[in-house]
Design a protein around this nucleic acid. Structure first.
Lengths: 136, 136
DNA sequence: TGTACTGTAATAATAAAAGTTACAGTATGA
DNA sequence: TCATACTGTAACTTTTATTATTACAGTACA
């Protein structure tokens, strides 16, 4: 999975949790994370597609949570961010003339799927509001 | 985690399982995986440090499993391969002037640790010999 | 209608991963 | 004992992925 983007997304959501009902600009968010505002806007786009945040264009626009923080789970953030599969599905092109090489990607895929299900179950137990309690 | 390396290591171990008691050269292994023999030797070095394989130098040298395939677990392979943490520990340098930025890495770390424990538990249920049964 | 935003494309800079070459070291066995 | 077939590892190059930057059109507000 894409390492830094999960952290960025959780960071964004945490900041938005601490200012629920306010529209926060990408520049403000980028200031706390210490990254470029354009990256923040890209992540917000992701989170928006998944229904986790809302954004408003124009002056006094910005972003806020799309639903209460106790209804947002870390598994959703993981899903929003994930592109590649957990352990790296089928990146190699094994030799098809070898019985192991010919089949290994399929078998690795099913191993990965199981592992990822477990991971999602674990992340699904932690809500954004629980995570944010740690800051108090 | 490092995507392709897990697949390479499992591939290596699978090939060694199907020829237990034989010393296989890095070139042979590289042929099935379809990668460079030097990369294979690097992975073998990793697996060797973790006690999963043995290697023999010199003519008619090569590598083989260090213990029976039913005593090797996918969690061990994961540990052997892992360098970075699962979801990417502390890559960002958040703004320490922001209360969220100042603490978030610690809180993310504990989230990651829990998630990784779950993942390891899941991978720990699958032995190399079980994995290899899929090929029959 | 100027201003402060978003959204997104295009590009550049940086970092990480993979591949390659090279070669010293080591057992083997002819 | 010495050519051979390996390992182990360093140094380097290439490739690919990530991150950052610049730029600008579109939008809403006051």
């Amino acid at each position: 999975m894409n390492s830094g983007r999960f952290a960025i997304s959780v960071h964004i959501l945490t900041l938005l949790t601490f200012s629920e009902d306010e529209w926060k600009s990408s520049e403000y968010l980028a200031g706390s994370i210490n990254i470029n505002p354009v990256l923040v806007r890209k992540e917000l786009g992701n989170l928006r597609e998944r229904g986790l945040v809302l954004s408003k264009e124009g002056k006094s626009g910005g972003s806020r949570l799309a639903k209460p923080a106790d209804q947002i789970f870390m598994s959703e953030v993981y899903e929003a961010v994930k592109q590649k599969d957990l352990l790296g599905k089928g990146i190699n092109s094994p030799n098809p003339a070898c019985p192991v090489g010919r089949m290994i990607n399929d078998h690795l895929d099913s191993l990965y799927d199981d592992a990822e299900k477990t991971l999602l179950a674990s992340l699904g137990k932690v809500s954004l509001s629980e995570f944010c309690k740690k800051f108090d």
